[in-house]
Design a protein around this nucleic acid. Structure first.
Lengths: 218, 218
DNA sequence: TTCGTAACTGACGATGTCGTCATCAACGTG
DNA sequence: CACGTTGATGACGACATCGTCAGTTACGAA
């Protein structure tokens, strides 16, 4: 991989690929995963045949779309939690930010929701980051966790449930709901009720609307 | 509805309907929801045309199949938790039994997993039972819950996550895993760590393999 | 037994989707 | 400028699924 200067042709290829991924994410977000390929390419403003230049099957495209969405969100979380020294707060902040994401970037959120629990046990995506953060907190004596793997699926399930609820109850205050669930989870992880509440009351960094599109990671 | 004696013709109709629902549940359990109708009817050992005598669309059949599975499991839970006077134990026992279900009745479990979070917010199915139990425990001063709805989606998410993990890690002890997650959730719900542990150590009623088939409720 | 009805059945035409392929446009190279 | 290569494009044949329908069987009533 001699890190070629991505010459015009490659950039064009990348652009059509990105367009397909974007369209796929939009369709997944609408729950329309069972659409003809032609419809996807039209949504991407790309010729029908172009699809097969990049993917062999619809499922393959969807997989790439989800992977892209996960990378985007994970990178954002990492960026926004650097510099925090309390591992418990890193966890809390990540979770709270993810909760807010459901409203700020509904498309991305819905993509995550659609693939749901598959992602919780997947070895790529958010799972490794979550495991890293939880184990760090355990080592630091902040969390009391009997089984990291079980805690992770519980937390992942809670996150998905929360997102699902937020999408179905648009009138509910997303920040308040997310903070409460985070607080509940911190208690579950061994923090005292008082401390859990305190951590979830701390201010959060702003969640910019610089939604990174596909093409950033691939 | 004069409660007619269900005469032979009606019984036959009910039988083919049940056969279709059974087949649908089996297919959902295998994740094969995108099969031609013909395949469903063959699995049910029923003529192709019969499908349209009972349902108008595949999705309609699946919906009936899920409803049936939920009623079956919910009724079982109610039956096995009657007579308990501590609402916290009712909750714990229901959750522990549901966890064990993932291994005892994988088909039924997978049906629940497939429809996932939809069921957590649905007004029919297990959600009303969960709400009832949680609110009873709160009234009795056993649980400390800020928002019942949020607790419910968290718990539902945890249950789904647990089931998902159990299906993907067959070597894991399902009873131990379930009890630990239950314990975690009880702490989250305000019980002390000691009490949570104690409640999850109590013996459970045997989970008979009298899997009720479709036709019982419909 | 005979007849009417309700449910079952599988074959068939209509419809929709797939994936290929021949062609074309854009780009880089000698 | 001329040629080769890479990617884009959409039309087309192959194939699968759908839902209907005309005919059949099982049942119940007269």
């Amino acid at each position: 991989m001699p890190e070629h200067a991505p010459s015009r042709l490659e950039r064009r290829k990348a652009r059509t690929r990105a367009a397909l991924i974007r369209a796929a994410q939009a369709l997944i977000a609408e729950g329309k995963t069972a659409v003809p390929i032609l419809e996807i390419t039209q949504a991407a403003d790309v010729g029908m045949g172009s699809f097969y230049n990049h993917f062999e099957t619809k499922e393959q495209l969807y997989q790439a779309a989800v992977e892209d969405a996960l990378d985007t969100h994970g990178a954002l979380l990492d960026e926004l939690t650097t510099g925090l020294d309390d591992p418990a707060q890193v966890f809390a902040q990540s979770f709270r930010l993810t909760g807010r994401l459901h409203r700020r970037h509904p498309e991305l959120s819905k993509v995550l929701l659609h693939y749901g629990l598959e992602l919780a046990t997947s070895e790529s995506g958010l799972a490794p980051r979550a495991r890293r953060d939880i184990e760090a907190a355990v080592r630091a004596g902040r969390f009391t966790v009997g089984d990291t793997e079980l805690a992770m699926v519980t937390i992942a399930g809670a996150a998905l449930g929360l997102g699902h609820l937020l999408h179905h109850q648009p009138e509910r205050d997303d920040a308040a709901a997310t903070d409460r669930v985070t607080e509940d989870l911190l208690r579950m992880l061994g923090l005292t009720a008082a401390e859990a509440h305190e951590i979830c009351s701390r201010p959060l960094p702003a969640l910019d609307t610089t939604a990174t599109g596909p093409g950033t990671a691939a």
